[in-house]
Amino acid sequence: MSLTLLNVIAAVVIAVGFAALNAAYLVWAERRGAARIQRRPGPNINGPLGLLQPPLDGIKLMAKQLTIPGGADRALFIAAPVLAMFPAIMSFVTIPFSETIVARNMNVGVLMIFAFAAMGSMSLLFAGWSSRNKYAMMSSIRAVSQAVAYEIPMLITTITVVMISGSMDLMEIVRQQSGSILHWNIFPIFGNSHNLLMPFSFLIFFTCTLAETNRAPFDLGEAESELVAGFHTEYGSMGFGLFFMGEYANIVIGACLTTILFLGGWNCPFGLFPGVWWFLLKIYLLIATFIWIRWTFPRTTIYGLLNLSWKILIPLSLFNLLFTAGLLKVF
C-alpha cells in the first residue's frame, strides 16, 4: 500500500468516524446496560430503543455555552479536552480489524499505541491544573499517579507478548495466534510459548486497562462522591463532551488492544472463518464486561489502587516476563 494523500485522508476519516460513532453509542450502551442491571428502562424515548439519544445529547452539549472559570489558564483549559480525544483517535489508525481492514499498519504499532495512551494522562493533568479548582487539581494528581502506576505492569505484560511474537507489528502478533483458542496468547497451548501463566497475564492486562481508562472500580479521577466530578468539574458544553468521548474511545482502544494481544484478533475460537466480525464480537464482549464491572463494584481507594499496582501487579508481571523469557530459551 503506497502512502498517497488520499489514503491518509481516508484512513483518518474512517478512524475518526469509527471512534466517534463508538464513543457516542457506547454512552448509549452503557446507559442501557446500567439500566438493565439496575432494573429500570434507561433512555428509551428518543427513537427506537432510545437510539437517537447520543446525537441529541451531542446537539445539546454543542448548544451549551462553554464557560471558562475566572483565573483559569485559558490555553491549557481549551487544549485539554482536545488532547483527551486526539490520542485515542490516532491510535485507531494502526489497529488491524482484520487481515485487510487496517488504516495504516506499521511495524511498531504497539509502541505507537502506548505512546498515545501516555498522552491521555497529559490531558487530565492539563484539565486539572488549568481549571483552578481544588477538586480538579486533586483529581488530576490522582489520575496521573494512577496512570503512571498502571502503565508499568501494562507495558511489562505487553513486552511478554511481544517477546513471544518477536514483533511489535500488531498484524504479525495476530497472525501468530491464528487458529483456535488454544493458539491464542491467553491459552497458548499450541502457541509458540506454552506459557501456562498467560491467563494471569491477561488478567493483569485487563485490570490495567480498566485502570488506564479510569473506569470503575478504578475511577479515582472522577470519584464523584469525594471530588465532585474530578478533573472535568469545570467543564461544560462540548469540552465535557470531548472528555466523555475520549473516555469511551479509550475504552474501545483498550478492548482492541486486549483482543489483539491476547484474544487472537480476528481469529475464530474454533479456528474457522476468521474475519472482522470475530474482532468486533470480542471487543464488544470486553466492553460489555467493562460496563458490567462498573455497575457492580464500588470504588477502590487511592492507596488500595496504588498498592495493587506497585505491590502486586508489577512484581507478578515482572515474574511472568522472566518466566516467559526462560521458557522461550528452553523451547
Binding site: A34, I37, Q38, R39, R40, A216, P217, D219, A223, E224, S225, W295, T296, F297, P298, R299
Partner: peptide, 16 residues
C-alpha cells in the same frame, strides 16, 4: 452509602 463508595446499583435495588 454504597453510592458514596462508588457503587451505584445497590441504590436502585434499595429504592425498589
Amino acid at each position: 452509602f454504597v453510592m458514596d463508595l462508588g457503587g451505584f446499583t445497590p441504590l436502585m435495588y434499595a429504592l425498589q
